[in-house]
């Protein structure tokens, strides 16, 4: 049995989690078994049943009041209980901070193999071989996963998730909770509201030092808004506090994998490219024709971002 953890965001299953369900269903099909999804937190049954249209036949829903806050330790205990309950041999998690943390603790509880950053479906013809991203996207490693239970963290776009016509039954899942998982006290939260998540976004518009200062971001924000895109930035920009730290994309920031990445006034240092090289299509806009980003981009424009960005925004609006 394949068990897939789906992450909820305000009661909705995240897009990367629906991809994970599609991935888990494909693994189940290849190994002649079924796929069950596990959701933790508040969501209504109709939303959870969506996992059925991506190939799960059952959804376990753990919704104890104590689980309302994202708590990786408690979530790991629930996941491990579900693995045991359902006799799961393969566990699929989308790649995220929460999933890495809970997957790791669940792996140690179960003595399971854990492989994170998986980019393709496994080859089950001889063993259980998966390909994962390493060196921050500069290379791949194919590994033979040996554990009786195999936990895989899959990267965005590891599979094209296509909605089908299947359906899933939703069952309440109420494992015993451990007090030890609740020793930490959450004392506060700072969260930008209404922002598109960088790891979920299909389009990202990102700015670098070429934007020349925190007050010049409007043309970039306008293009992002016209495209329905999330916004990111380079490391120097977040170091200078022009943009908040959670927008920093790169080797030591967030690694993204959108369908379209538009880099505005970012030179393309190797550390930045490491965070974006999983993007499907990259556009670089820079006034320096020698900017290294043009070597990594699919489309390039040499020019002044303050001239180009408003014109692109207008072109997007005109095309609608």
């Amino acid at each position: 049995m394949v068990l897939i953890f789906v992450e909820l965001d305000n009661g909705s299953i995240k897009k990367t989690s629906l991809e994970a369900v599609a991935y888990g269903a494909a693994v189940a099909k290849a190994t002649g078994t079924t796929a069950t999804a596990l959701a933790i937190g508040t969501a209504d049954a109709a939303e959870l049943a969506k996992a059925g249209t991506y190939g799960a036949t059952k959804v376990l829903h753990a919704n104890a009041a104590e689980l309302a806050n994202e708590n990786a330790m408690a979530y790991a205990s629930v996941l491990a209980a579900a693995v045991k309950n359902e006799n799961a041999e393969v566990v699929i998690l989308p790649k995220s901070g929460l999933c890495d943390a809970m997957g790791a603790r669940a792996a140690a509880k179960l003595g399971a193999s854990i492989v994170s950053g998986v980019t393709e479906l496994p080859d089950v013809s001889n063993g259980f071989k998966v390909t994962r991203s390493i060196y921050t996207g500069k290379a791949f490693a194919t590994v033979d996963v040996k554990g009786t239970v195999k936990i895989l963290g899959i990267k965005k776009n590891a599979i094209e998730a296509v909605e089908g016509t299947g359906s899933a039954t939703v069952e309440a899942f109420t494992p015993a909770l451990n007090n030890g998982d609740f020793v930490a006290k959450v004392t506060g939260q700072e969260k930008a509201s209404g922002e598109l998540s960088l790891t979920e976004a299909d389009i990202i518009v990102s700015g670098g030092r070429g934007m020349k200062g925190p007050d010049n971001w409007q043309p970039l924000l306008d293009l992002a808004s016209a495209l329905g895109a999330a916004t990111g930035c380079s490391k120097p920009v977040s170091d200078l506090d022009w943009r908040p730290h959670h927008e920093h994309i790169g080797q030591t920031g967030i690694k993204v994998a959108p369908n379209l990445y538009i880099a505005c006034g970012i030179s393309g240092a190797i550390q930045h490219l490491a965070g974006v090289n999983s993007s499907k299509v990259i556009v670089a806009i820079n006034k320096d024709p020698e900017a290294p980003f043009f070597k990594a981009a699919d489309y390039g424009i040499v020019g002044d971002v303050f001239d180009i960005l408003p014109r692109l925004t207008k072109a997007v609006k005109d095309a609608k």
Partner: peptide, 29 residues
């Protein structure tokens, strides 16, 4: 728990298609 089979490098990136700045709008199409 997991043993290496082999490493691979990403397929080389094709050439970047340059769009003249005065025709920037064509990027969207």
């Amino acid at each position: 728990m997991a043993t290496l089979d082999q490493y691979t490098l990403p397929a080389p990136k094709g050439a970047c298609k340059m769009i003249p700045a005065d025709q920037a709008e064509t990027l969207i199409s």
